[in-house]
Write a protein that binds this DNA or RNA. Sequence first.
DNA 1: CATGCTGGAGAACGCACGTTCTCCCCTGCT
DNA 2: AGCAGGGGAGAACGTGCGTTCTCCAGCATG
Lengths: 183, 183
Amino acid sequence: MDSATAREQALDAAESLFYGRGIQSVGMDDIRGASGVSLKRLYQLFPAKEHLVEAYLERRDVRWRGRLAEYVERQPDPERRILAVFDWLEEWFGEADFRGCAWINSYGELGARSERVAEQVRAHKRAFRDYLASLVAGAGLPDALTGPLYLLAEGAMVTAGITGGTRPATEAREAARSLVAAR
Amino acid sequence: MDSATAREQALDAAESLFYGRGIQSVGMDDIRGASGVSLKRLYQLFPAKEHLVEAYLERRDVRWRGRLAEYVERQPDPERRILAVFDWLEEWFGEADFRGCAWINSYGELGARSERVAEQVRAHKRAFRDYLASLVAGAGLPDALTGPLYLLAEGAMVTAGITGGTRPATEAREAARSLVAAR
DNA sequence: CATGCTGGAGAACGCACGTTCTCCCCTGCT
DNA sequence: AGCAGGGGAGAACGTGCGTTCTCCAGCATG
């Protein structure tokens, strides 16, 4: 097995375990068991657990925002694109392994201890907010709409993580529709 | 020192340490050092760390909702009471030791591992949402407003926790005002 | 004074886990 | 065949920490 695929398998295992059970309750030995990559190799690829955590968050960030953008951009009407964000949230919340926002959870777990993780979370949230801002601008709507829409989306994510279910997404979409309609 | 004050001092130390640094990174020995309550006594009062964590969350829940209600009820106009919730959030976010919502953070840290903690978080959020619902009803507004207001508040809490600052509260208040105005 | 109880200080224990080390097999080269 | 090197399995090591235990000082009681 070459390095590149070992790295991918390690990250696959890390993502499913870290996201599903939390970071601190997953040991490097669990990663080895789930990935089939030996400890020796794991430590060659990631010199410490924290590096693996960062690589996990980074790869998930790219994929998460990619999936969102891909979904949203199937919608040609620029104003409806904004609401499509909430449709996508609803789909996400409904996935069987959904367990909340990985960054919010990681921040609760490690934000106070690891400045690197805290900064990755801030960067992810900044990127998401900027993306919303670009959709608002693309629809010709006032920039002041971005903040409220962002807060609705964050509230939906944290609530869906805690209580489960897709209802937070539909509530957020209706509120977003109302805000957009009110200009 | 009698049991009751030892218990209070232990909980004071637990609250400031757990909230400020996260639960898992605070050891029982740190609690002892900060509270002056010996390990032996700590374990008499709380048979395991998890009990202390639960007592911390429970006492904080009572106090947090008490402070909120006290602030809100100073406002006589029932519609303005709803906005007062966001004013109070702004004050809270501005406190020097503010580090996000204790329950959201605890959920990220322990939600996947401790069903007791997860249930306490859900109960706290349910109580907060029910309180918002009572304000909405008290103002004679449609119940459908509760969900969006709740999501705005949650989004503001999580965002203020991650990025710091009071701006999420003002953004949420403006959005709330707009939703209330639109009926 | 002797005796027994309470509670504090902190050592000790056990375990989990991040990280490193040892041993050995396998493979490819000469 | 002989051998060097990479990689796997898993033991070993060090540390942190939850929990318990030991020891002793202080104090109330006969």
